[in-house]
C-alpha cells in the first residue's frame, strides 16, 4: 500500500538484468532493484543516458525477464511463460519513435489490431474503439492514416491502441522525446487525464525535468539502481546532488536557489511556477 492506500501493481524484488552476448558476460544494466508501482499512481523515472531506465521499463511487461530476483505484475511472476499475454494486457508500452510502432492504414484499425488478436467479437470491438478514441480526443480522426498525423497525434494513437486492451498501467519510454513542444504537452495532458479519470497507473520515463515535476512520485535511476525515490519536491528541491548523476532541476528551482545564494529569502525547494510567483510576490510585499 502507498500513502493513497493503493495496492502494488508491479513489484520488483531484488530484480536485476544482465545482457549476455555469447560467452561474454556484460556489465549488469539493472541490479538488485526493489520497487513498487501502485495502482493509479503517476510515476516519473529520470536518469542519464545509459542508466538502465529502458531496461527497467522492458522488465515491467515481460519484454525482458529478470536474470536475478523477480518482477511480479498483478500477482503474476513475469518469468512464467504462461503469464506473458496476461501481463502484456495489464501493462502496455509506448516507445520513443511514434513512426516505428504504428502498423495499420487507419487510426481505427490501429486500435482494433490488438483486439482482433484477442478474438474480441466485431460488435463489441466497435464499442471499445468508439470509447477509446473519444477518450483520447481522436474521434474525428478515426479514418485518417496514422502516417499523416503529427508526432503528438501518432503517440496518442499508440496510447489509444494500448488503452483498448484495458490495461492497468501504461509505460511511456521517452515517448515525448521526439515531439515538438506542443506534441509533448498534448501527450502529457492525455496520460495525466487517464491517470486521474481512469485510475490508470502511468510510468513516465523522461529527460525533461519539467515533465517529471508533474508526477506523484519521481524515481531517479542511476547506474542500474534506484538512487532516489520520493515526491518531486524532495527530489528536485532538497539539494540532492542531481548534478553528480547528470540531471538538472526545473528552471524555477534553479532561479530560487540562485536568489537564495544572493541572500534573498526564497524557499529553494520550489518546483512549480505558481509557487515561485507567489514567493516573489511575498518578497515584494515585505519590502
Amino acid at each position: 500500500m502507498n500513502a493513497a492506500g493503493n495496492a502494488s501493481l508491479i513489484s520488483f524484488r531484488k530484480a536485476g538484468f544482465t545482457y549476455r552476448r555469447g560467452e561474454e558476460i556484460e556489465v549488469p544494466a539493472v541490479k538488485g532493484v526493489d520497487l513498487d508501482i501502485h495502482r493509479g499512481e503517476f510515476l516519473a523515472i529520470v536518469g542519464s543516458n545509459g542508466s538502465g531506465k529502458s531496461t527497467l521499463a522492458k522488465m515491467m511487461n515481460a519484454l525482458l525477464v529478470p536474470t536475478e530476483g523477480e518482477v511480479i505484475v498483478d500477482g503474476m511472476p513475469t518469468d512464467e511463460e504462461a503469464n506473458v499475454w496476461d501481463i502484456r494486457r495489464t501493462v502496455g508500452m509506448v516507445f520513443q519513435n511514434p513512426g516505428n510502432q504504428l502498423v495499420s492504414t487507419t487510426v481505427e484499425e490501429e486500435v482494433a489490431f490488438g483486439l482482433e488478436n484477442l478474438g474480441v467479437p466485431t460488435a463489441e470491438m466497435h464499442g471499445v474503439i468508439d470509447r477509446v478514441l473519444g477518450e483520447i480526443g481522436l474521434a474525428t480522426m478515426r479514418r485518417r492514416e496514422p502516417h499523416n498525423l503529427s508526432g503528438g497525434q501518432k503517440q496518442r494513437v499508440a496510447i489509444a491502441a494500448v488503452l483498448a486492451m484495458q490495461p492497468e498501467c501504461i509505460v511511456m519510454d521517452e515517448a515525448t522525446s521526439m515531439l515538438d513542444p506542443a506534441g509533448r504537452r498534448d501527450v502529457l495532458e492525455t496520460v495525466r487525464h487517464l491517470c486521474r479519470e481512469r485510475n490508470l497507473a502511468v510510468v513516465f520515463i523522461t529527460h525533461f525535468m519539467e515533465e517529471a515535476v508533474q508526477a506523484d512520485r519521481v524515481v531517479v535511476f542511476h547506474e542500474g539502481a534506484v538512487a532516489v525515490d520520493a515526491e518531486p519536491k524532495t527530489v528536485f528541491g532538497e539539494g540532492l546532488d542531481l548534478d553528480e548523476i547528470g540531471l538538472d532541476v526545473p528552471v524555477v528551482t534553479a532561479l530560487s536557489r540562485g536568489l537564495g545564494e544572493l541572500g534573498f529569502d526564497v524557499d529553494p525547494t520550489i518546483t512549480e511556477m505558481e509557487e515561485f510567483v507567489e514567493a516573489i510576490c511575498r518578497l515584494r510585499s515585505r519590502t
Binding site: G47, S48, N49, E174, S177, M178, H207, M209, G246, D248
Partner: peptide, 9 residues
C-alpha cells in the same frame, strides 16, 4: 534531441 541534461549541456 534525446540526450540527457548533462550530455545536452
Amino acid at each position: 534531441s534525446g540526450l540527457d541534461p548533462r550530455g545536452r549541456a
